[in-house]
Design a protein around this nucleic acid. Structure first.
Length: 643
DNA sequence: CTAGACGTTGTGGGG
DNA sequence: GCCCCACAACGTCTA
């Protein structure tokens, strides 16, 4: 379209190849093209994002910006430091935008945000172009073909997919780009409120990404640095960016046997350097790899390979179907997909450490009730890799350090925290994964936690993962444990998964004594914690409790769950906070927390203590899932900064 | 409607 | 390495 001035809004599509939305933008034959990222306070302060995932995002942005410049020296990614909801009306005018183009996003917050932006664009007379490119199928279409029901099995996705038709081939990356127009900033920056800042546990300095105007400290629209965000250094070896993603995909595809015969359950969660799976998940999350590019590159190898190729759901393309399944479920259920409360498809189980619920929004707040000091201690020891079970601790330490663990490793730690050990609410575990995973995707994370906790998607709760037996399927010698729990490096193979069974003489010889809860040193020896419970005993307790909760048969939207009267259906002595009769699942609601336990940060010694029974909160009343535009407005300070 | 097979990824024992 | 079974037993999908 002649004379069109197009604003291309990058979000979770940080790539040039396989982007239907970018192709649509270029189809407009724009007179000028602005490539924009809006630096959203929702992500900076109100979502759980550790330094590793932030680094991955910045990698993706910097790589994309360089690629844009390669196609046209005048182009780059223009990072604008303001929430899109407040920025766009000003920007549309200042840059005389005629079209706004972006990729469709069905995440709950993204839907709210995009509805607002769409309304603002309409009011400004800006035309909107939206294309789907994030999943194999448009989640809304999937759901429509399922008669409005959430996609709760891969079979449903496959059947719906057949009706929708073939998955489109990827669109090629552009080979040239029009110039951007001028970028005047003759308007004021609306600064967000820094509080609540649920990421402050990851900062060792002040967060400054909004304090130097819309175009940043160099006035050049460059992405910020971790230092500007006040974040501690990243520790992951996994780096982001489309260039890396495409190189990784090339090397996977080059190995035809691996690509065509991949079977997820047979890959080793204990493998490191190299890992057994593709490591492409964070690239799919940020969009530095196009999902249809991945699908078709694999599918072409599979088609040529013949009968010996593996099939969905275990094959590589099968993994993508699971991703679509979770997106389809989330698209139907919205914010409540990420919690049990008010979720029609999640089973209600009276877990320990239940979430606080905001009575107005019916959404979890980010805080939780400490119904049992023991469960809280278990949770903290789990989070920081000091359970005394080397397999679990190695995984949790790898997760914290590198931001990625193998899918089956995620199974092991999730089963252990919930139905197969601690009987702690899966929402606690999901929050830790959200904080630390570089590939965190709300739909997949919530869905997989529901799967492992046996509250949805999966129900064979009697299949419990053993922290001792499971890893031995792949790693008899315990190489993985020795890598991530180095204090056990010299332990005999016989005791590597059960160090508490090693005779004292062997412990001394290995230079590490099994004692206490913390780990540390004792004289000349290192120490490793005793196991925090007898696993066989906890397995029995959990099985009995799960069986009972299944028999009671409540779902998250049952009136008795909503009003707290579910307790009448459980024996007072049953596992979990089942005593008494009244109150919401979390036993506390907003404004009712006399014994608020504040988060003590992420440092050493922040766990393994025993807080009093009471409540625990992020200290900043999360509100993470509660924010529509109305509440977002409330969080935006009206302080204006002249640029 | 029912019956039976199946469900990406359990464990422990046996062949 | 592969298969089978018992354990005690869930929901979904298909015939």
């Amino acid at each position: 379209m002649a004379n069109s001035r197009v604003l291309y809004w990058f979000r979770t599509d940080l790539r040039l190849h396989d982007s239907p939305a970018l192709a649509a933008a270029l189809d407009l034959k724009p007179e000028c093209l602005y490539c924009v990222w809006t630096w959203d306070p929702h992500y900076v302060y109100r979502a759980r994002v550790g330094p590793n995932r932030f680094q991955f995002l910045l990698d993706c942005q910097n790589d994309l910006s360089a690629s844009l410049t390669k196609l046209n020296p005048k182009q780059k990614l223009l990072l604008l430091r303001e929430a899109p909801q407040t920025l766009f009306p000003k920007l549309f005018k200042a840059w005389r935008i005629s079209h706004l183009v972006f990729e469709k996003d069905t995440d709950a917050y993204a839907k709210d945000r995009d509805e607002t932006v769409t309304r603002l664009a309409r009011e400004a007379g800006v035309e909107i172009v939206v294309r789907m490119g994030r999943t194999l199928y448009d989640p809304d279409e999937l759901v429509k073909k399922c008669k409005g029901k959430p996609t709760m099995s891969v079979t449903m996705v496959q059947n719906a997919g057949k009706q929708i038709g073939a998955i489109p081939r990827p669109t090629p990356a552009p080979t040239s780009l029009p110039d951007p127009g001028d970028t005047p900033l003759d308007f004021e920056q609306e600064q967000p409120a820094q509080q609540p800042d649920i990421n402050d546990i990851h900062r060792n300095d002040t967060e400054k990404s909004y304090s130097s105007g819309i175009s940043g400290p160099g006035s050049d629209f460059a992405p910020p640095t971790l230092q500007e965000l006040g974040l501690k250094p990243a520790t992951t070896p996994h780096r982001g960016g489309e260039t890396i993603a495409l190189r990784m995909l090339d090397s996977i595809i080059a190995n035809e046997d691996y690509t065509a015969t991949f079977e997820k359950p047979k890959t080793a969660p204990t493998a490191f350097e190299p890992q057994a799976t593709t490591l492409l998940s964070p690239h799919l999350h940020f969009g530095s790899l196009g999902v249809r590019e991945f699908y078709w590159r694999v599918q072409d190898v599979v088609s040529a390979y013949g009968r010996r190729a593996s099939q969905p759901p275990t094959s590589l393309t099968g993994q993508l179907l699971f991703r679509d399944m979770y997106f389809g479920a989330q698209a139907t259920l919205g914010y409540s997909f990420a919690q049990t409360y008010n979720n029609s498809h999640a089973r209600f189980i009276p877990w320990h450490l239940p979430s606080h619920i905001s009575p107005d929004s019916r959404l979890i707040t980010g805080g939780y009730a400490v119904d049992s000091p023991t469960a809280e201690r278990w949770f903290q020891r789990w989070k920081h890799g000091r359970t005394g079970f080397p397999w679990i601790d190695a995984l949790m330490r790898q997760l914290r350090l590198e931001g990625w663990i193998h899918h089956l490793g995620r199974h092991a730690v999730a089963s252990f925290l919930t139905r197969g050990g601690c009987y702690v609410d899966w929402e606690r575990g999901a929050e830790v994964f959200e904080e630390w995973l570089i590939d965190h995707e709300t739909a997949s994370n919530a869905g997989n936690w529901q799967w492992l906790a046996c509250v949805a998607f999966y129900s064979m709760f009697y299949r419990v993962y053993s922290p001792v037996a499971f890893p031995q399927k792949w790693d008899k010698e315990g190489k993985f444990v020795r890598r991530y729990v180095p204090e056990l490096k010299e332990y005999p193979v016989k005791y590597i998964y059960e160090p508490w069974k090693a005779p004292l003489a062997d412990q001394r010889k290995a230079g590490c004594l099994v004692m206490g809860e913390e780990g540390g040193t004792e004289g000349e020896y290192a120490t490793y914690p005793r196991p925090m419970f007898d696993f066989a005993e906890r397995r029995e307790v959990c099985l009995k409790a799960m069986k009972n909760a299944y028999k009671v048969g409540l779902y998250g939207n049952d009136p008795r769950v909503l009003d707290g009267s579910w307790r009448k259906l459980f024996d007072d002595a049953a596992e979990g906070p089942t005593e008494g009769e009244g109150g919401l699942p979390g036993a506390t609601i907003e404004g009712d927390r006399t014994e608020d336990v504040r988060q003590r940060g992420d440092g050493e010694g922040d766990d393994a203590k025993s807080p009093e029974v009471g409540t625990r909160d992020t200290g900043k009343r999360g509100l993470k899932r509660e924010r529509g535009q109305a509440t977002l407005d409330g969080l935006v300070k009206r302080k204006r900064v002249k640029k």
